[in-house]
Design a protein around this nucleic acid. Structure first.
Ligand SMILES: [Mn+2]
Ligand SMILES: [Mn+2]
Ligand SMILES: [Mn+2]
Ligand SMILES: [Mn+2]
Lengths: 224, 224
DNA sequence: GGTTAAAATTAGTCTAACCTAAATTAGCTT
DNA sequence: AAGCTAATTTAGGTTAGACTAATTTTAACC
């Protein structure tokens, strides 16, 4: 447990954390799909991660995995680095928010504790990354924000965007162009019954955007 | 040649460059020693690097290796990243010059072309790293400074330090404490005949330091 | 309760990079 | 010229982490 985990294992644990953070287990096929690795390889790795001392996941055949406490801490450690890097690249090196995820996916594995703390300090100990995701603090405590998916907001209600999906650069460029970034005030104007498409008013610009249900499910709002 | 080389290979090429930059070839045992890898493994890798398309080294059994042009460019690319990172950590994140080599040894492999150019710009396109080593420019052109080793300076002569050894943190902390950094003005007061130990006057502080011949051989001076 | 499709696992390979032990070669000394 | 030693190479093996193909299990449906 003391020695560094391999970059591959770090990515597995991080992904399991992301999949299970809203409850439940991570399945072999979910991991295979999102990590871009064959299901057979994932099974292999999950069995290995469940047999380490201490184990990082609890694994039962055909039942998917959950993180153990050791696994959760390892995942939060790398998640903290990932999000600090994203924030740093935007704040200090002029990156746009669609460029940072890919960079952070690599750099997170090359970051020493010293670099982590220097970057944290240089940013003034930030609590959220450019996409609105919370950054675990140095003790790996993570703030649970209470939010609701845009797709569940009642029609007519006002809200503030707290979080957007962070992986797909195309989506991020689109959202950025619309002004749909964390902190933006919006009002849900309408939701069509048939396909659940939403019309959203962006208060700052007065413009109206159309958001489909799958994207709307990945955007978080705090009601106001 | 287009695809990225592995971190291991990058380190091999960088080390071959460093060893051969003052002419000659790099031997298996030199590489094994300085990379901390067994000689058998080094032989293996050298044979592999000589059989790629294009080859990165010219290898003849028992004769050591030299870099090909492709190998030289690959080495300079990673050396540029290494030195940019070192400079950035010192300038922007408050690192001391003895802490940066180890960090850069890892980060150099995780640096994208975009990050490289952003850091380069943020630093104002620097030409030397914290230890006085030249940073290849974006086209991998590297400036050949004319310098002489401190151990070859004539007694009584004045000079400016241009470069110090960069790997050993202990040595660097000692040099830093003495004020022996690139740019420092010195005068060589004496060299004992028997063991070639040197007495060096640091003009800025007026203090005197004793430098042994092996360290003196790794410190470069431009005569003034 | 049996059929079936999807999901997961097992079995068998592969590559990159390392290792140790054994064999060979180069280069120096007598 | 032969012998010795240090350097190098070869041979054989390991580990991490991936792959494909074949098999097994689950879960849903009739
Ligand atoms: Mn990653
Ligand atoms: Mn993010
Ligand atoms: Mn390196
Ligand atoms: Mn340096």
């Amino acid at each position: 447990m003391t020695q560094e985990l391999s970059p591959n294992i770090q990515d597995y644990l991080k992904r399991i954390y992301e999949i299970t953070s809203s409850g439940g287990k991570a399945s072999t096929s979910q991991l295979a799909e999102t990590l871009g690795i064959s299901a057979a390889s994932v099974t292999n790795m999950l069995q290995k991660l469940s047999k380490t001392q201490p184990p990082y996941v609890t694994y039962q055949k055909h039942q998917g995995v959950k993180l153990t406490e050791a696994g959760r801490l390892a995942a939060l450690k790398i998640l903290r680095r990932h999000r600090l890097i994203e924030h740093y690249l935007v704040q200090k090196l002029g990156y746009t928010w669609d460029e940072v995820h890919q960079e952070a996916e690599i750099l997170e594995h090359a970051m020493s504790p010293l670099l982590e703390s220097r970057i944290d300090a240089a940013l003034g100990y930030p609590t959220v990354d450019p996409h609105g995701d919370p950054i675990p603090d140095a003790d790996l405590a993570i703030s649970g924000v209470d939010h609701i998916a845009l797709s569940r907001l009642a029609v007519g209600k006002h809200g503030t965007i707290t979080r957007v999906p962070h992986e797909d650069p195309q989506v991020l460029r689109y959202l950025g162009k619309c002004g749909l970034h964390p902190g933006a005030q919006i009002q849900l104007l309408a939701r069509t019954p048939y396909d659940q498409t939403m019309r959203v008013l962006i208060l700052e610009s007065g413009e109206e955007v159309v958001i489909g249900p799958s994207l709307g499910g990945q955007i978080d709002i705090s009601e106001t």
